[in-house]
């Protein structure tokens, strides 16, 4: 099962590689991993997407908790949550018909065209993984020159907050 795990960790050098190293050493898979500073400069927030059965996920959470630099770990997929990913796609856009078609598609997905040349568009879209998949599906007949995805970040719904 796909899970989104949020980790608060000490903003120290090597902390990220401890987390990444744990996953490779124990054979857990990482579908995506994002990390950045938080409003508290001593803490980083890391979000990872992984897959595994309940026993594997339980071990992942326990092993993460065991790392000395890890302050808090939570599986946000356990409850109601929001997930977002940003995708930037550079596509071929030649001729007015193709360019119009692209404009319509980006409007449907509430994305943006953020860069333009005479032959290309660079598109930006934000959403959960299902929306990103449908967006990419919509680009099936378009020549994609380059894709970059931020990886999933997420947060739980409601009043509770993940804090040190």
């Amino acid at each position: 099962m796909r899970r989104i795990i949020s980790v608060l960790l000490e903003n120290e050098s090597g902390a990220l590689s401890r987390v990444a190293g744990l996953f490779s050493a124990r054979g857990y898979n990482i579908e995506s991993l994002t990390v950045a500073a938080t409003e508290d400069s001593t803490l980083s927030r890391l979000t990872m997407v992984t897959r595994g059965n309940d026993a594997v996920i339980e071990q992942i959470l326990k092993q993460l908790n065991k790392l000395i630099d890890v302050v808090k770990v939570v599986d946000i997929t356990e409850g109601a949550h929001l997930e977002r990913e940003v995708i930037l796609v550079k596509v071929q856009a030649k001729g007015s018909e193709a360019r119009d078609e692209m404009m319509r598609l980006i409007e449907i997905f509430k994305g943006k065209i953020v860069d333009v040349t005479e032959t290309t568009y660079t598109l930006e879209m934000t959403g959960d993984s299902a929306k990103i998949s449908s967006f990419l599906e919509g680009l099936k007949n378009t020549k994609i020159l380059e894709t970059v995805r931020s990886g999933i970040t997420g947060i739980s719904r409601g009043k509770s907050a993940l804090r040190a």
């Binding site: 090597g14 590689s17 401890r18 000395i68």
Partner: peptide
């Protein structure tokens, strides 16, 4: 050595 021993220590620091 911090990198080398990371998987076989409880913790390490430079």
């Amino acid at each position: 050595i911090v990198g080398i021993t990371r998987p076989c220590v409880k913790h390490n620091m430079l």
